[in-house]
Structure formats: structure tokens, C-alpha cells
Simulated assay, not measured.
Amino acid sequence: MSENQNLPAAASAREDEIDLMDMLIVLVRQKKWVIGCTVVIGGAALVASLLMTQIFTSKATIMPPQQQSSGLSAMLGKLAGDVGGMAGLKNPNDLYVGMLESRTVADSLIRRFKLKEMFETQTMDDTRSVLNGMSNISSGKDGLISVSIDHKDPLFAAQLANAYVEELVRLTQTLAVTDASQRRLFFEKQLKQSKEQLALAEVALRKTQEKTGLLQPEGQIQSIIGNVAQLRATIAAKEVQLTAMRSFATEQNPEYQRTQQEIGGLKAQLAKLEQGQQTDGDFMVPTGKVPQTGLEYIRRLRDVKYHETMFELLAKQFEMAKIEEAKDTSTIQVLDRATPADRKSKPKRAVITLLGVVMGFFVGVLSAFAREGLGRSRQGDGAKRWAALRQAWRAD
């Protein structure tokens, strides 16, 4: 019974051996065809690689800012690093990679190098696509970010790679990426608002001074009171003098009339101070309005002092934030500037030629079996089938 079971297995082995031998026979018979296909396709690949435009690659390497924080932020940062893979958190460098790949940076480079005219594209979207195709921005496991540019001009490739880094530096200066820069931007905005409010308060104080005539309230009020007292005393003295003159002079006496006129002028000045009659350019405030104008002046002056104090405090905070931002390591540091490449990076002629040879060999082998099968089909029963096919084709 066991011998009968071994017979089919032996027959199957012989059939496999016969099939393998048949394949080798076909390859030996079609060896010229296989070698020809390999040489032709491999040679075509070599010629194509020689005709391809040489591409040079320039790379710039930068070290992104290292976030330094304390307390809760540090603890959260350590926790994020421990469970980053489980929670799906990304590398902080991805933020700067995203900024480099942003439309803002691309548009700035397009305008700077006039890439639309260079690439001869119709729209900005097409220009961005060409720019993205020749740019390779990646973050390595070592924490460094590399910017590689492929172009036929090695000098332009180096300039464009360095321009990417420059645009990133400029973008980080305008955007609040770190805690220190956020504080600096906050105090900068508050300082600008405080400066505007201080200017408005100073304008309001100046208008109050122009309207009321008060420049230094304490000194001016004392001067006004002294002038009023002096005028009253002078008027009283003149009236006593006029009364004394009546005993020996008539009303037609020139001296008597002059004294009367002097008394009238002094009384007019006193009335102006007491009743509020001011003329243009007169800085003497009416005594009836001293409390009101003094209160208004004090309020305006208080506003100016308040905004001055706020401006000084915010200015100090702003300067401290700038110092903190400068001390922070959150600046883009260029590790390697891009330089024009001495050797081409593409095309890789050896790889292209090798792939062409391998592809030619496989094409030759497959086509050899196809040729062998086609030749056999035209003999014996296959010839009759071919004749019937031709007859049917002609009949149609």
C-alpha cells in the first residue's frame, strides 16, 4: 500500500523536473533574444540618464529653539515626552517644520526670487507646487531640522535653502511662538495703548490750560488774590486822595479829573477779576471761577500723571520681557549654512542603468517564453487553429 502511495509523488517530481528542464531549454534556445533585450533596454536607460538634466542639492541645517520652562510647564513637558507615543503628541519641531512649509513663507520666497517668472507658471498655486516639489524639509531624530533644495543651478539652490532659514527667523520674530515672546508682544501692545492714552491726556490738559488760563494753579491763585487785594487797596487810597482834593479843588480841576479816571480804571480791572471778564491772551483767571477752573485743571493733571505712571510701569515690564526673550534660548540657530554643491545628486546613472539591465532581462525572459509558445502553437494542431482563425477573419 505504501509503494502505491509513493508512485504519484515520484511522478509529480519527474513532471516538475521536466518543466524546469523545459524552461532552461527555452532560455538557452532564446538566449540571443534575452541578451539582446537586456542590452537594448539597459543601453536605453544609460542613454536616458546621460540626457537627464543634472540636479544639485544644497542643504541647510538649523537647531530649533529649546523650550525652557519651570514648574508646571516643565512637569507637563516631561509627561508629554513620556506618553507622547501613546497620546499621539507630536514632536515640537513639527511646529517649525510647519512654519517652513507654510504658504506665508512660500509666497515670500516667490516674491523675493521672482519664482513665478523663473518657473514660467501661470498662477501662484502652480508656483507653490513647483517650489514644494524641489524643497525637502524634514526633522531628524537628533532634533535638527534640515532644508534641502534640488535645482540645476547649485548657487541658486544654496541661496534658496538659506532664504528658507531667514524667512523662518523673520516669522518667529513676528509670531509669539514661545512664552517669552508672548509676554514681550503683550507688553508691547499695552505700552502702545498707554502711550496713546497719555498723549490724549496731555492734549486735554493743554486745552484746559488754554481755556482756563491756568498754568500753575497754586502760584496763579496766590497771584490773583494778591492782585485783587492790591487793586482794592489802591482804589481805597485813591478815593481818600479824591476826597481830600474836594476840599481845595473843583470837579473841573485836571488833577481831580485824572484821579477820577484812575479810580475808574482800577475799578474796571477789579470787576474783570471778580466778575469773570477775560480778554484773549490774559492769563489772569477770574476770582469767581477759581474753584471751578482749579478743579478741572486738577482732574486733567491727575489723568496725565496716572497715564505717565502707567506708561513708566509698562515700559519697565516691556524692557524686562525683551531681556528675558533675549536670554531665552528660543532663537533659531543655524548649524550649517547651505553652500553650492560640487557634485550632482541626480540623476544616479549607475542605479538607472542597473534598473534598465534588470528590467531588460525580465522583459527578455518573459518575451522568450511568449515567442516559444507562439512558435509551438503554429505547429501541429496549433497550425490548424491558426488557419481556422485566419479563415474566420477573412470571412468577416
Rank of each mutant, 00 (worst) to 15 (best):
Q216F: 14
Q216N: 13
Q216L: 14
P217V: 01
P217L: 03
P217Y: 06
E218T: 03
E218C: 03
E218N: 00
G219S: 15
I221M: 13
Q222W: 06
Q222S: 06
S223Q: 09
S223H: 13
S223L: 07
I224S: 05
I224P: 04
I224N: 11
I224F: 08
I225F: 12
G226E: 10
G226I: 05
A229W: 02
Q230G: 08
Q230M: 10
R232T: 05
R232P: 04
R232W: 04
A233G: 12
T234A: 15
T234S: 13
T234E: 02
I235F: 01
I235H: 02
I235W: 03
I235K: 09
I235C: 00
I235R: 12
A236V: 12
A236Q: 11
A236R: 10
A237S: 14
K238L: 11
K238F: 07
E239S: 12
V240R: 15
V240K: 15
Q241K: 15
Q241I: 01
Q241S: 13
Q241D: 05
L242G: 02
A244D: 13
A244M: 10
A244Q: 11
R246Y: 11
S247T: 03
S247L: 15
S247P: 05
S247W: 03
F248A: 13
F248T: 15
A249S: 14
T250S: 15
T250D: 07
E251S: 14
E251P: 06
E251T: 07
Q252L: 13
P254A: 11
P254F: 00
P254Y: 03
P254T: 09
E255R: 05
E255D: 14
E255S: 09
Y256T: 04
Y256R: 08
R258G: 15
T259F: 04
Q260T: 00
I263V: 12
I263S: 04
I263E: 04
I263D: 07
G264Y: 14
G264P: 00
G264H: 03
G265K: 10
G265Y: 07
G265Q: 10
G265F: 09
L266W: 01
L266V: 04
A268G: 02
L270E: 03
A271F: 04
A271P: 02
A271S: 13
K272G: 02
L273E: 00
Q277N: 09
Q277K: 03
Q277M: 06
Q277P: 04
Q278E: 01
Q278S: 02
T279D: 14
D280E: 15
G281S: 02
G281V: 02
D282R: 11
F283Q: 10
F283E: 07
M284R: 15
M284L: 13
M284D: 02
M284N: 08
V285W: 09
V285L: 02
P286C: 00
P286S: 15
T287E: 05
T287P: 00
K289F: 05
P291W: 00
